[in-house]
Design a protein around this nucleic acid. Structure first.
Lengths: 230, 230
DNA sequence: TAGTGGTCTAGACCACGGC
DNA sequence: CCGTGGTCTAGACCACTAG
């Protein structure tokens, strides 16, 4: 037989595509498949687990493994550093700190992050440039106790984006994309007309233990696209 | 000892966060870690492989395992059926076929999909409604040989979105998000002013063997958000 | 409570790719 | 070459949960 888990993965995917294994129906259990393919159960497990992680199968102990009713695929987005995204286009990266302050964080934002009222927070607004043209406008709130040393970081040398990735790796968070018309400030900084449709990204990250770390709102220059791989 | 792979996963993540294992440096090999944790190498492998898939580690044969320089995390988007997305909000789902035709596909679009000029293509425009209010406007091109039976499908009963997911599972593709001002048609259908900033999703899917399957452009009603989990 | 997937082990061989 | 991760095995025990 000499089956590798990738062979089994491929064959299982073929059966799903061909509806030989129909949506919402049980497939044979691991032991039976191991016998059919002439390999050990661990090998079958490896293949089926990969398919389950990709959303093709749903597995539950005792209940068995079934083909997902609507194979709800997942798309993956590799979150790039702005520097890398710009340099990957063959453009020159630069950034400009527009403002930096220890201002009070508005209550709604605090609530969204689950921060107490007296948590020390720093706000930094940054413009990112590609070949000297505005690329993205970033408005970042950083919870200082989650990023020790940030308040003294030389952000003119290392952009906030890069500093935080290198010094305060986060563990989880959310990323929201939406469309928003450019306000006067965004229009001025990004060099477009007020009201222009801009892609807007809002990202909140949390460190280990659900401690809020950062809240970032980024407006991209007009016509920006985000690509996800399915 | 009694270590599970998740224990090792957690401990390794702790060492990465604490910079005990610094970015861009090698960590001990699997055999050594297995001895340290008092478990088998396979268990260590399971933990480190998960960390590599999540972007924390980079592994190469012979070269060993190193902490990623900039732990480039990946965000995951669960692509929902519009029906499920709407019903999950507790709203009533409905859809309306606006047009359906076997019109010629514009050359630029054909090129984007890698289709020959004579490939049979059907175009369907659909409006999706939540509680009777416009939710999304979809413009879909379907490559008929990749979706046999689509031309005779009763799309008034089963929306194109659902029909294709159930009858022609795709294997891979891309998803692009951007912001676009509402044109006259989008504004009329979605019930907003022309020029309103709309979130726009463009999705191309391919079946097994890189055969083009569908190209879909969706404009969402104003203020729509897409959430990704990190 | 019995069946299923989840996991661990100890050992083995292999593929890749620095050196 | 030869160290490293990638994978497979045969068997075992465990955790969850449907019936």
């Amino acid at each position: 037989m000499a089956q590798s888990w990738q062979d089994i993965h491929k064959e299982a995917l073929r059966r799903i595509h061909s509806r030989e294994w129909a949506p919402d129906t049980l497939i044979p259990n691991e032991a039976d498949l191991a016998e059919e393919f002439g390999c050990s159960r661990a090998t079958v497990n490896r293949a089926l687990r990969a398919l389950a992680e990709a959303g093709w199968l749903e597995r539950r102990r005792k209940a068995g493994t079934r083909v997902a009713r609507a194979p709800q695929r997942r798309a993956q987005l590799a979150i790039p550093l702005l520097r890398e995204e710009i340099e990957a286009r063959g453009q020159r990266f630069a950034h400009r700190i527009l403002s930096r302050s220890r201002s009070k964080m508005p209550s709604p934002l605090r609530a969204a992050l689950g921060l107490s009222d007296d948590a020390p927070v720093e706000r930094v607004q940054t413009l990112y440039l590609a070949d000297g043209h505005p690329f993205a406008l970033e408005d970042r709130w950083v919870h200082l106790s989650a990023a020790p040393g940030f308040e003294t970081a030389e952000l003119e040398k290392t952009s906030p984006n890069e500093w935080l990735v290198q010094h305060a790796p986060f563990s989880h968070g959310t990323l929201d994309y939406s469309a928003a018309p450019a306000g006067d400030f965004e229009a001025e900084q990004l060099g477009c007309a007020p009201g222009t449709a801009l892609l807007c990204m809002q990202r909140s990250t949390f460190g280990p233990g659900d401690h809020a770390a950062t809240l970032v709102t980024t407006h991209f220059a007009p016509n920006h696209r985000v690509r996800l791989e399915i």
